[in-house]
Design a protein around this nucleic acid. Structure first.
Lengths: 186, 186
DNA sequence: GTCTATAGATGGATAGAC
DNA sequence: GTCTATCCATCTATAGAC
């Protein structure tokens, strides 16, 4: 049941936003009364936090697996781009929530999630550093370029259309070629 | 007074988000009672719409001016990148609102703003097409690449720090070099 | 573990005096 | 053009029965 509540919440937070979604609406979508939700979650924010944690953890795990399987900065950067984009398309709803509902978290929870996001960014930055050290990437501003890469790859969750012209792999390919070309020492 | 209300609203929508900001809070920040706001704006959404219109219009105007002054796809793309980034840093609060509060608009207003955004995107796509036609940009997926460029340049409003390491012009430079390298026919 | 009922606060918006 | 006062809906969350 906790999982059913979470799934309803994901759909609603995605569609209407966190603040515009009420506990009654979540309850109705789940097929229970709103008071019953409080048996599983102590506050509305708790539901949001659960969604954040799950999706951030899964993303972290996916990146770790993909990075460990790749060797060399070029291959590892490609793996990271693929991983990030595929995740943000397959888990589109959660990705959009994670990308736009940070303000729904109060200080303590906010810090926890920001910490996870920072760790993730650092992993990408490390790959960039490796590429510069290996001499295959140009000397670049690691921080700024990592924000640029993450922003453009994250944004696919806002415009990708499952019944559109391109598959998720094709999108990942286009991004990968573009980014690696921008990074390459030419 | 209308302008004072708008300025308070921009600060609050930026800081707490549209749905988490109440009319009473806006009134308090402006130094009037909440009923007085309704003399200037008929609904809360009207304030948001006003903010959207102003910032979108100013961005459009800035881009038009900058593009008209540049010749050749390379120079024009550089101008577009600069213009977009500088605007999103100088008008950081409005940029963040425009980027994250679209859900606060009901159907009619939503359509109006989406139309403006589409027009803006088309201008960027036209510059990409020019570059491909001129043979200075590699043959690429215009739509996907335009989304990538806009997403990374828009995101500066979320991480740029006015008292940080880099000036807005330095950030624009880093982006410009990275993007044009990714686009170049090499 | 779900229910009914309700507390208690706050939301957007309006009426009408000045 | 701003004020006081208030309407009515809705919100999160809790109490206590089953």
């Amino acid at each position: 049941m906790k999982d059913k509540i979470k799934k309803s919440a994901i759909k609603l937070f995605y569609k209407k936003g966190y603040f515009a979604t009420s506990m009654s609406t979540i309850a109705r979508a789940t097929g229970i009364r709103k008071s019953s939700i409080y048996h599983h979650y102590s506050t509305k924010e708790d539901i949001l936090l659960d969604i954040f944690r799950t999706s951030m953890n899964d993303l972290q795990d996916a990146l770790r697996t993909r990075l460990d399987a790749a060797t060399g900065a070029r291959e590892r950067m490609q793996a990271a781009i693929y991983c990030h984009i595929i995740f943000h398309i397959e888990r589109q709803k959660e990705a959009i929530i994670a990308d736009s509902e940070l303000r729904g978290l109060t200080a303590r929870n906010y810090k926890e999630i920001i910490q996870m996001r920072d760790d993730y960014e650092k992993k990408i930055q490390r790959v960039l550093e490796e590429g510069v050290a290996e001499g295959i990437f140009v000397d670049l501003d690691i921080k700024v370029i990592s924000y640029a890469i993450l922003a453009m790859c994250t944004a696919v969750c806002t415009w990708f259309n499952k019944s559109g012209r391109l598959s998720k792999e094709e999108v990942a390919d286009i991004f990968s070629v573009f980014i690696l070309k921008g990074l390459a020492r030419s």
